[in-house]
Amino acid sequence: MKVAIQNNAKVLALFAVACTALVSLVSLLTKDTIARQEQQQLLSTLHQVIAPERINNDLYQDCQFIKDEEYLGSNQSQTAYIARMDHVPVAVAITSVAPDGYNGNIQLLVAINVDGTLSGVRVLKHKETPGLGDKIETRKSEWVYNFNDKDIIDEKDLRWAVKKDGGMFDQFTGATITPRAVVNAVKNTMLYFNQHQKDIISNTTSCRGQHD
Rank of each mutant, 00 (worst) to 15 (best):
K2G: 14
K10M: 08
L12W: 14
A13F: 13
L14W: 06
A18E: 06
A18Q: 04
L25R: 08
V26E: 05
L28F: 11
T33V: 04
Q41E: 00
L42T: 10
L43K: 08
Q48R: 02
I50R: 10
I50H: 03
E53F: 05
I55N: 02
C63A: 15
Q64S: 07
K67G: 00
K67N: 02
D68T: 15
E69H: 09
E69A: 15
N75Q: 14
Q78G: 01
A80F: 04
D86V: 12
H87T: 14
V88R: 13
V90S: 09
I94G: 15
S96W: 04
V97W: 03
D100F: 01
G104N: 11
N105D: 15
A111L: 11
V114C: 01
V114P: 04
D115S: 12
G120S: 14
G120W: 11
K127D: 07
P130Q: 08
G133V: 15
D134F: 03
I136C: 05
I136F: 02
E137K: 02
R139F: 10
K140F: 09
S141E: 12
S141Q: 03
S141K: 00
W143E: 00
F147R: 13
D151M: 12
I153F: 02
L158W: 00
W160F: 03
K164M: 03
G166D: 11
G167S: 06
D170F: 11
R180W: 06
A181N: 04
V183M: 07
V183Y: 01
A185F: 00
V186F: 13
T189E: 00
T189V: 13
T189N: 01
Y192G: 12
Y192N: 01
N194C: 04
I201T: 15
N203Y: 03
T205D: 09
S206W: 12
G209I: 08
